[in-house]
Design a binder for these strands. Structure first.
Length: 431
RNA sequence: CGGGAUGUAGCGCAGUUUGGUUUAGCGCGCAGCGUUCGGGACGCUGAGGCCGGGGGUUCAAAUCCCCCCAUCCCGACCA
């Protein structure tokens, strides 16, 4: 992609409305723009990152045996009346009426709809277990939207729902989802912890939260450096105000940490199947409620959380896994024919090797290109300057640690191959 | 929903205390021309504002008063 033909409106100055790094940087790097409190447009660069996150999540869901479907955002009130949550959800639910004055809501979550599907089509133990997921936009009229994408009123989430004939079967799927979530976070390259959590309004018996560690996180957790036990501060049994207390497993002192909740998995049991009459016939010929689990991971929140964890004073430092481009190719002068010819050549070589390149061919000073490059945070930078015209040498720099090396034209394929085999450059979309 | 703050050009801000020399300014960005050209370079020229909205007070309001709206932060709550 040529920078001059793409759409990356970067900002030199920090927008006044942004208080934390991820918010400021996602605005400055031209990933998003605000349309109202807690509501954002995704610009092309931001969308590329979202697609990569989605693709990693999708692959891991498929690997874990989940099946993708797509449920509507617009939902009639009936099912919510049945589950009792039309009232329970309160003002956090966006509600509207159709032309016939029927009540609808914009789905804040999808337990009701998916359970209705199960009610319709899961009749026998032979149909089970099933684990269904979607990547869908959610609407929640938050009391206080905050920190840009971290707490938005419209956001994208991967949510899955499993249906089993009994608790043992649920345990197996729950464990699979647990592991899939760990793999997602590891593939993206985030530092995280899994904690025991409160079940909240969703309800159910047991649940775990996946927390991305970050100083600005809203969630507090305790962690035992000794045995690895970790829990949400609310359920750790330690005093919420003062010290972190001692570990329930080994008695050692607990450390408190802060982070951003990115995923949450629940064993729901039969809460929704009971309320919505979702029953199946078991081996013994008897009607039983479907045993459910639900598993959510925030896609748009992941984008923000990743920035929150991975940035420096100059800008974003994307991990290769979700970077909008793998290589930022810079010609130091966009006005000079010789430079542009060289740039075009290297651009063709890289794209020919299936590398996602952002080719900065703009007619602006090199300084601007470097600053933008730092801001946008593409992992690897190829620089073509006078040195290239003289000796045919490309300067290669890593965004993360600033390491530099020189590369000749001939050694580009080898360089890329090495990166690919090190699984360093591959976008999930190309796998 | 309680507490706090802020709305002036696309972005960042000054001007509001004490109403009038301000025709409403500065920096960045944007457009044109020229010089630069490996870390947001320089010069000249130019476009861009119902000072968040409405209502008052006054000879006169960005500035004082009332109401509304929007945005952000803290809290309670939540993925």
């Amino acid at each position: 992609m040529k920078f001059s033909e793409f759409f990356i409106p970067t900002l030199k100055e920090e927008p006044g409305e942004a208080e934390i790094s991820s918010h400021a940087l996602s605005l400055r790097a031209g990933l998003i723009r605000k349309i109202a409190s807690g509501i954002y447009s995704f610009l092309p660069l931001g969308l590329r990152v979202l697609r990569k996150i989605e693709e990693i999540v999708r692959q891991e869901m498929d690997n874990a045996g989940a099946i993708e479907l797509f449920l509507p955002v617009l939902q009639p009130s009936d099912l919510w009346e049945k589950s009792g949550r039309w009232k329970e959800y309160g003002p956090e639910m966006f509600r509207l009426k159709d032309r016939n004055k029927r009540d609808f809501c914009l789905g804040p979550t999808h337990e009701e709809l998916i359970t209705y599907l199960a009610y319709l089509d899961l009749k026998s133990y032979k149909d089970l277990p099933v684990n269904l997921y979607q990547i869908q936009v959610k609407f929640r009229d938050e009391m206080r939207p905050r920190y840009g994408l971290l707490r938005a009123r419209e956001f994208i989430m991967k949510d899955s729902y499993s249906f089993c004939r009994n608790d043992d079967s649920l345990d197996i799927i729950y464990k699979k989802m647990y592991n899939a979530y760990c793999r997602i976070l590891e593939r993206i390259g985030l530092r995280y912890r899994v904690v025991e959590a409160d079940t909240g309004l969703i309800g159910g018996s047991s649940s775990h939260e996946f927390i991305i560690l970050a100083e600005n996180g809203e969630d507090k957790l305790v962690f035992c450096p000794e045995c690895g036990y970790s829990a949400n501060l609310e359920v750790s049994g330690s005093s919420p105000g003062g010290g972190s207390g001692s570990c329930v497993n080994c008695g050692k002192n607990l450390k408190t940490e802060k982070g951003i909740e990115i995923g949450h998995i629940f064993k729901l049991g039969s809460k929704y199947s009971d309320r919505l009459d979702a029953r199946f016939v078991d081996v013994d010929g008897k009607q039983k409620p479907l045993i459910m689990g639900c598993y959510g991971i925030g896609i748009t929140r992941m984008l923000a959380a990743a920035i929150e964890q991975m940035h420096d004073s100059k800008g974003i430092v994307w991990p290769v896994s979700i970077a909008p481009f793998a290589v930022n190719l810079i010609v130091t002068t966009g006005k000079n024919e010789e430079f542009l010819k060289a740039g075009d050549l290297v651009y063709r070589i890289l794209t020919g090797l299936d590398v996602e390149v952002l080719y900065d061919d703009r007619e602006v000073n090199a300084g601007i290109k470097f600053k933008d490059s730092d801001l946008i945070g593409i992992p690897i930078r190829f620089i073509l300057g006078r040195k290239f015209l003289d000796n045919k040498l490309i300067d290669v720099e890593y965004r993360k640690d600033g390491k530099k090396m020189e590369l000749s034209l001939d050694s580009i394929p080898g360089f890329i191959k090495k990166l690919n085999t090190a699984n360093n450059l591959k976008s999930p979309l190309n796998e």
